[in-house]
Design a binder for these strands. Structure first.
Length: 471
RNA sequence: GGUGGUAUAGCCAAGUGGUAAGGCAGUGGUCUGCAAAACCGUGAUCGCCGGUUCGACUCCGGUUACCACCUCCA
């Protein structure tokens, strides 16, 4: 039975989708004004793994995500880079696609840009005005937060305290316009010329911070969805405001389960653009070629817990992933080389069955990837034990390999095969060493092994002959 | 100040009212020409104080430290 932790109720709840077998899921995407950093990637990675697991579990998942391609940040950065807002957004949207593709994150079923749903946004805001939950002031439109009786539940904040906090930071102009400091903008008037603005019943302007998500969900998934995801920092105000807008608009429960991921920390501090302690995926992958290791690091920690990012944790992830890959390659190689009886091994099949069940139990518990990983390591040990046996059964060997591939693919690791190859010189050294070993010239063979090691190639001797691995 | 979270072996990190998964490192062994890899074995009483209980790391109260949200932020 699948259970998920719902931020709305702060408890783990049994998961029941609105439509059996079908899941409607929305995850907040990036504002495309620069390269994504590891924190953004963590969110995308975590929800990709959740989506992959739900799919593995047999659900049909409709996954919608947005690109925010408008707003002050986009305008500012466009001016800095000498591009139009649309060009800038296009540039970083493509960068997002490239970075996430390297991390093996499956693109959402539907991906929409805020600028593509402008008509729907205006209609949505109009409806909120007609319902009396919004008001216009000099080209701005605000939502009457206090009128929505469940306002703030998701973020577990007290309304009056929120009001005090809000009042303290409002600028005088904004304070004058709002009926209540906690009201939030649905539409912001834009009076400058030459910057992104759309025509509306309230004059030229742009949508407020939160409306695009409400609109896209309504447009692509309908008034009620099963899962809504994003970073925990979005619980307030972003998701809080989404609930108010959407439930006022539809009169229905907006989201069944709110899922929020934790942060990537550096030196026990949140990685963020404002703190300036961020590492972009773009730069990290350009200097560190193994994107799979990065993905593995981002996925193996439970999605609600913080990830400590450092060179050490990255190395640790590399070591763990290597152990998994080695087991896979070891058995795969033996199966490929030897002629083996195509039959099954009942005892091993039984263990494999248990492992698969354990994996599902782990992941059914609010997507507990930490425990899922422990089960994967059990499978690794089983494979290593099996690969040592004299009488391998081909079918069972394939079942083990398929299982390992399937389970790791849920973690975003799609290919356990070795992609690297040796260059001509390295191959010659390796061949020469094989020859030396044949002649039992161990002095020469050890020297050649050292030479290869100096080039970053680790050589091991196995029953099947030499085996190599890039360090 | 309010709210949410975290504190478990050298490090990363699961977990349950009944004497603590897994990975890394270390260490002993098997295997190996040597090595590596792999396999087998090996270590903690769970921030602190108090309470409930036959029994708590797991429940309750308090306390300390750290993080996050309350402003755009995954």
């Amino acid at each position: 039975m699948l259970k998920v932790y719902n931020t709305y109720t702060l408890t783990k709840e049994t998961f029941n989708p609105i439509t059996p077998g079908h899941i409607k899921m929305y995850v907040c995407g990036p504002t495309v004004y620069n390269y994504i950093h590891l924190g953004n990637a963590r969110s995308a990675s975590a929800f990709d793994t959740i989506r992959r697991y739900l799919t593995y579990r047999g659900y049909q998942v409709d996954y919608v995500s947005n690109f925010t391609d408008l707003g002050d940040k986009v305008i500012q950065q466009a001016q800095k880079e000498g591009l139009t807002e649309a060009q800038l957004a296009q540039k970083y949207e493509m960068a997002f696609d490239q970075d996430t593709a390297k991390l093996n994150i499956i693109p959402a079923t539907v991906r929409s840009k805020a600028t593509e749903v402008m008509t729907e946004i205006i209609d949505f805001v109009t409806d909120l005005l007609e319902k009396g939950y919004a008001y216009e002031v000099e080209g701005d439109v605000y939502f009457r937060a206090r009128k929505f009786s469940n306002y703030g539940i998701l973020s577990h904040q007290n309304l009056n305290e929120m009001e005090e906090n809000a009042a303290g930071r409002l600028n005088a102009q904004e304070a004058l316009r709002k009926e209540d400091p906690i009201d939030f903008a649905l539409w912001k008037g834009e009076h400058r010329s030459g910057v992104q603005a759309w025509s509306s019943p309230w004059g030229f302007g742009r949508p407020g911070w939160h409306i695009e998500c409400s609109v896209m969900i309504d447009k692509y998934l309908g008034p009620a969805i099963d899962l809504h995801g994003g970073g925990i920092d979005l619980a307030f105000p972003h998701h809080t405001n989404e609930i108010a807008q959407s439930e006022t608009h539809s009169g229905e429960e907006f989201v069944r389960y709110w899922l929020h991921n934790g942060f990537v920390n550096v030196n026990q501090e949140k990685m963020s653009k404002s703190l300036g302690n961020f590492t972009t995926v773009h730069e990290l992958l350009s200097q560190y070629s193994d994107a799979q290791t990065l993905r593995f690091l981002l996925t193996k920690t439970h999605y609600r817990r913080p990830i400590n990012y450092s060179d050490t944790t990255l190395e640790q992830a590399q070591i763990e992933l290597d152990r998994i890959r080695r087991a896979y390659r070891r058995l795969a190689k033996r199966v490929a080389v030897e002629s083996i009886k195509d039959s099954t091994d009942a005892a091993v099949e039984e263990q494999l069955k248990l492992i698969k069940a354990d994996f599902m139990d782990a992941m059914d518990d609010d997507f507990n990837t930490e425990n899922g990983l422990a089960v994967i390591f059990e499978l690794v040990t089983l494979i290593n034990q099996y690969a040592d046996q004299n009488s391998l059964q081909l079918a069972t060997a394939h079942h083990l390999l398929d299982a390992l591939q399937t389970l790791t693919s849920i973690f975003g690791i799609d290919n356990l095969e070795l992609k690297e190859s040796l260059n001509e010189e390295e191959q010659q050294l390796l061949d020469a060493r094989a020859q030396a070993r044949l002649m039992k010239d161990f002095t020469a063979s050890d020297r050649l092994r050292d030479e290869l090691l100096a080039k970053g190639v680790v050589v091991r001797d196995t029953v099947q002959g030499q085996e190599w691995e890039r360090k």
